[in-house]
Amino acid sequence: MDVLGVLNLGEIAQYFSKMAMFPVFDVAYYIVSILYLKYEPGSVEVSRRSPVASWLCAMLYCFGSYILADVMLGASPIDYFHNNSHVLLATAVWYLVFYCPLNLFYKCVAFMPVKLVLVALKEVVRTRKIAAGVHHAHHAYHHGWFIMVITGYVKGSGVALISNFEQLLRGVWKPDSNEILNMSFPTKASLYGAILFTLQETHWLPISKSLLICLFTLFMVTSKVFMTARHSHGSPFALVESWVCHLLFHSPLGCDDSHDHHHHPAAAAPAASPAKTKEELNEGTRKRKSKKAE
């Protein structure tokens, strides 16, 4: 009993849910987001040819979820840019990732142990954004369950949902990479998390918000860190989704569109070695092109 009294999970969860995200967690979010932008094909070339376009892409990676959620809720899409400290911080990260001498900053944050820590901190921010999106929508549309789910979903994965628009800024058009058609694990997790937080907000889930934030953050951090360390882009939901889709929508068992979408035969890794992520494959392609140009 004394141990349970010392380890009061309710108080820990309450403290964790109220912990400030700025600046440490937000910096980690910006670093990982812009790091993934640099992995995209042509992003480095764009940063040399048009820094303005590169900066706009970076801001979409950092604030795309806020922009899309504001548009959905009838607010100005540039409303979040009044947070000067956040914009300046994201801009500083963008400059260091793309223009730091000898690529030192990029090499430091891409170093796997450091990257795993940054990925974990980013998932903390993602969970908080989902919860905040659902709460905001609940305040505006008290009985709009679907609006709460959609807003939380957009807050958690808005960057991926507007990826096609961001690609246009880089001069790339890949409609088959639409995130709705090929949902990645963070996008799926954001949707499921939005449903859970909506149920909690409407008192259908008998759990406190702080405890739900703590538990969902733990799940997201564990899953994303493990997947990043293993160079995997699968999904912990794959088995359950396969059976549910088979029963409800007559989909073939074992079908994983996102896996097929990211694994092209030409870029497939040997069976004995772990599969590389989409970002790492893009980074390898960019480096090979740079060597050929030299």
Rank of each mutant, 00 (worst) to 15 (best):
S242G: 09
L212F: 13
L239T: 13
L247W: 14
A189K: 00
M227W: 09
G234W: 02
L191H: 07
L199P: 02
E280G: 04
P270T: 05
H261P: 02
T198D: 11
K287H: 13
L218G: 13
A269S: 14
E241L: 12
T228W: 07
M227G: 07
H261C: 04
S242C: 09
G254R: 01
L253M: 09
K209Y: 10
E201V: 04
D257Q: 10
W204V: 01
S258E: 05
T228P: 01
T222V: 14
H262V: 15
L211F: 07
L215Y: 09
T217Q: 00
S210C: 06
H264Y: 02
T217P: 00
T285C: 11
F216K: 03
R288S: 14
I195M: 11
F249C: 10
A194F: 04
Q200A: 08
K209N: 12
S251H: 12
P265F: 07
A268S: 11
P270W: 01
A267Y: 01
V225T: 14
A275D: 02
S223A: 11
F237G: 04
P274G: 04
S208E: 11
F197I: 08
L191N: 00
I207A: 14
S273C: 03
R230W: 03
S223V: 15
E280K: 03
T217S: 15
P265R: 10
H263P: 03
L248C: 12
S242F: 04
D260L: 11
K287G: 00
A271F: 07
K209M: 12
A267G: 10
A267D: 13
H231W: 08
E241N: 03
L211P: 05
V225P: 04
P270M: 09
E280N: 03
V225K: 08
L199C: 15
T285M: 14
R288H: 14
D257G: 14
Q200E: 13
S208F: 09
G193H: 04
F219P: 02
D257I: 10
D257F: 13
Y192W: 12
H262W: 14
R230D: 03
G284W: 01
H259S: 05
V240Y: 02
T277V: 10
S210A: 15
A272L: 00
P270R: 04
T222P: 07
L191G: 05
T198F: 11
E201S: 15
S258W: 04
P270E: 02
D257M: 12
E280I: 02
E280W: 00
W243S: 00
R230P: 02
G284V: 03
A194I: 04
G234I: 03
H261T: 09
T198G: 06
F226T: 11
A272W: 02
P270I: 06
A238H: 10
L247N: 02
H231Q: 12
F219C: 06
H246G: 10
S223N: 08
I207Q: 08
S251M: 11
S223T: 15
C255G: 06
D257P: 03
V225L: 06
S208W: 10
M227C: 08
F226I: 03
I213R: 10
L205S: 09
S251P: 04
L191E: 04
I195L: 11
S223I: 15
K289N: 12
H231N: 15
A271W: 04
